[in-house]
Design a protein around this nucleic acid. Sequence first.
RNA 1: CCAAGGGUGACGGAGUGGCCAAUCGUACUAGACUGUAAAUCUAGCGGUCUUAUGACCUACGGAGGUUCGAAUCCUCCCCCUUGGACCA
Length: 359
Amino acid sequence: MANLIDQLEHLTEEILTKEELAELLASKKKLTHYIGFEISGLVHIGHVSSLNVVKPLQDHGAQSIIWLADWHSYINNKLGGSFENIRTAAKYFEHAMRAALLCHGVDHTKVQFLLANDTYTMKYWELVMAVAKNTTLSRTKRSLDIAGRTAGDSIPTAILFYPSMQAADIFFLGVNIAHAGMDQRKAHIVARDARLPGFQKPVSIHTHILQGLQKPSIWPIPEGDPLQTAIALKMSKSKPDSAIFIHDEPDVIASKIKKAFCPPKETKHNPIIDWTINLILKRDKTFTIERPAQYGGTLVINNPQQLIALYEQEQLSPVDLKNGVTQWIQHFLEPAREYFKSEDKQKLLEQMRSMVITR
RNA sequence: CCAAGGGUGACGGAGUGGCCAAUCGUACUAGACUGUAAAUCUAGCGGUCUUAUGACCUACGGAGGUUCGAAUCCUCCCCCUUGGACCA
């Protein structure tokens, strides 16, 4: 079994911190990690991508928790801000997550699913306040982009509880590793800086945020804070063509990739390049592109550098890359599609779809 | 609770008695052009019917009213923004 730290480094954008993780591993403590999701719309490939660390962690004996953060949805007014809708959505979400885990070859029955509302106790709210007491208002406000908000807008007071609650979740669940997409890093920092007496600072690991498939509204992308840029470019559940959902049929996958923004020679902020590097090449050692002989025949890509070089020199055309990516994703999501074939899950999916539209 | 300013189609934002189904921009959809997408151009973009001209229905926060006629005027209500009052 390969070294866990190396594996995680390969799969993620950052580990806070590597030293702390090494210490944790050396301590022989039981590893527990969690990833929380605000329940909202349909589950897409970005969610799937963020679960890429579950397999190696499990292989090293970690207990995995998927946290269904229904209170966060409620606070953020998702799905009409109705607990009833959110509860239905949570059922869908759990299945969708199980489906996503299958794509990574994870035994989903070993993953623990917890719904926040079924789990919170008075002790939890005490922890929320403890975190809030140790966090300045300005930091809380700066952290609001984890909820897709900015303090500048007129915001309901409830949103201000969001970061403290997310940090408190970590302590409440007693996990020693928190993992999430890069867009959630500020919540983890709040937790790490909260210094709650009697609690360990959590190690936190952050995965890459996959870009949305469509052309960014501002192009070319101005230089700036890379994290802000990534958040701005991330795929959106509310724009169906910017994301591929886990239950999308192969023809839908093909049509979305076909419509995707993909400028020739341009490898920065090119979603197809982004997906190839961060989804495909992180998971597989090689990526094979079948292409007609007239365009060069079958191509095997071994690493991101090679991909970038070929693409920038126009030895790999957007069309061929798209075709390769399409095939790969169709295959990758196959287990999820299978999982969702049953009648009860189709029904949940339908419910979910109508809920998202009505909203 | 008070004051001022607001609530228009997916969004931004015009329109302040008939020429308004509502300018314009963005987004979206379709087609043309590219071995992809983008950009560009053309068309569509509340609903139903019609080959089409057109007709009808539903619409400008909600409910009433004035008028031949209202998104536009009046009344009441709801909500939002900013400031203030109360708590002191």
